[in-house]
Simulated scan of single mutants.
Amino acid sequence: MTARHPWSRYVAIGDSFTEGIGDPEPASPGGHRGWADRVAEVLSSQVPDFAYANLAIRGRLLQQILDEQVDAALDLHPDLITISAGGNDIIRPGTDPDEVAARLDGGIARLRRDGATVVMFNGPDIGGTPVLGRIRGKVAIYNENLHTVAKRHDAIVADMWALRELSDPRMWAPDRLHFSPIGHQTIARMVLDALNVSHDLEPFEAEPLPRQSWRQARIDDIGWAREHLAPWILRRLRHQSSGDGVAPKRPEF
């Protein structure tokens, strides 16, 4: 018989990663499923009257998450909270990973106030990613800070950097900024393992990728830059966010 986990009220907070962008599912609230929904589905199958809320909104910066979502999460009296925050700050030019982590530290202290289990996410290794690969060192510094924050507040780290499967391009959505359904499934498995919760989520069985010519790779890069990178840069210049006007997909239990 499978041992039951100890949680009954789960709240997920964060940005597009936690909202589930890249994992479209018309039947899910907001039209996206994502790793958090997948984790909640497993947790709910093992505990009666399990409750799940997801307050994450795409495009949110760390301070917006701290200001808009932390108190709203605590008001739901959860015993399990996941938070992924700071990634949108880190990818912006000129941000200081030490300063971002220091602000997150205060947020984790607040989330731990009532004794809930808190799961934090560090950043994946983006060394092989076009454009974003240039800030690999910045992400690594942020990650080291997050391990210190987690130790200080007795939080759990869902270690994305160690999840080497994420280097496979099939783990990423066409925009190369969000994860694909396969990526979200892989991350859900990792989170459940970090929580020591048994599950039967299928692992990704990697098959060899077909060889791609240098010319075709460059054509794909140009298409990606035109379709995804340029609009992202334009929103930054206009001080717009993909989350403008978007509400949480699961604001209550």
Score class of each variant (00 low, 15 high):
residue 168 D to M: 09
residue 157 V to W: 03
residue 151 K to M: 02
residue 120 M to E: 09
residue 122 N to C: 06
residue 110 R to Y: 09
residue 177 L to D: 01
residue 169 P to H: 09
residue 132 L to E: 12
residue 155 A to P: 10
residue 176 R to Y: 06
residue 152 R to G: 02
residue 142 Y to H: 09
residue 126 I to G: 06
residue 139 V to Y: 14
residue 171 M to W: 10
residue 129 T to A: 14
residue 157 V to A: 04
residue 140 A to F: 02
residue 139 V to T: 08
residue 117 T to K: 10
residue 152 R to V: 10
residue 141 I to H: 08
residue 151 K to F: 02
residue 131 V to R: 05
residue 109 A to G: 14
residue 170 R to Y: 00
residue 134 R to W: 13
residue 118 V to C: 09
residue 107 G to P: 10
residue 153 H to L: 02
residue 135 I to K: 11
residue 115 G to A: 11
residue 138 K to P: 10
residue 144 E to A: 12
residue 168 D to L: 09
residue 114 D to H: 13
residue 117 T to P: 05
residue 121 F to Q: 11
residue 147 H to T: 03
residue 171 M to Q: 08
residue 149 V to E: 07
residue 176 R to W: 14
residue 173 A to P: 01
residue 144 E to S: 11
residue 150 A to Y: 08
residue 146 L to M: 15
residue 149 V to N: 01
residue 139 V to P: 00
residue 140 A to Q: 10
residue 170 R to E: 06
residue 172 W to L: 04
residue 127 G to M: 04
residue 110 R to G: 13
residue 143 N to C: 04
residue 178 H to T: 00
residue 124 P to Y: 04
residue 124 P to V: 03
residue 167 S to H: 15
residue 129 T to H: 12
residue 161 W to V: 00
residue 155 A to I: 12
residue 175 D to T: 05
residue 176 R to C: 01
residue 164 R to E: 13
residue 141 I to M: 05
residue 126 I to Q: 05
residue 113 R to S: 14
residue 130 P to F: 02
residue 128 G to V: 07
residue 141 I to G: 07
residue 165 E to D: 11
residue 148 T to Q: 08
residue 164 R to W: 00
residue 134 R to T: 13
residue 151 K to P: 00
residue 176 R to N: 08
residue 154 D to G: 07
residue 152 R to S: 09
residue 155 A to V: 10
residue 144 E to Y: 00
residue 135 I to T: 14
residue 154 D to S: 13
residue 173 A to F: 08
residue 171 M to S: 10
residue 142 Y to G: 05
residue 118 V to Q: 11
residue 166 L to F: 04
residue 125 D to Q: 09
residue 168 D to E: 09
residue 108 I to H: 13
residue 116 A to N: 15
residue 167 S to W: 04
residue 172 W to V: 03
residue 124 P to M: 07
residue 175 D to M: 05
residue 112 R to T: 15
residue 138 K to I: 14
residue 119 V to A: 11
residue 145 N to Q: 15
residue 112 R to G: 12
residue 160 M to Y: 01
residue 115 G to P: 12
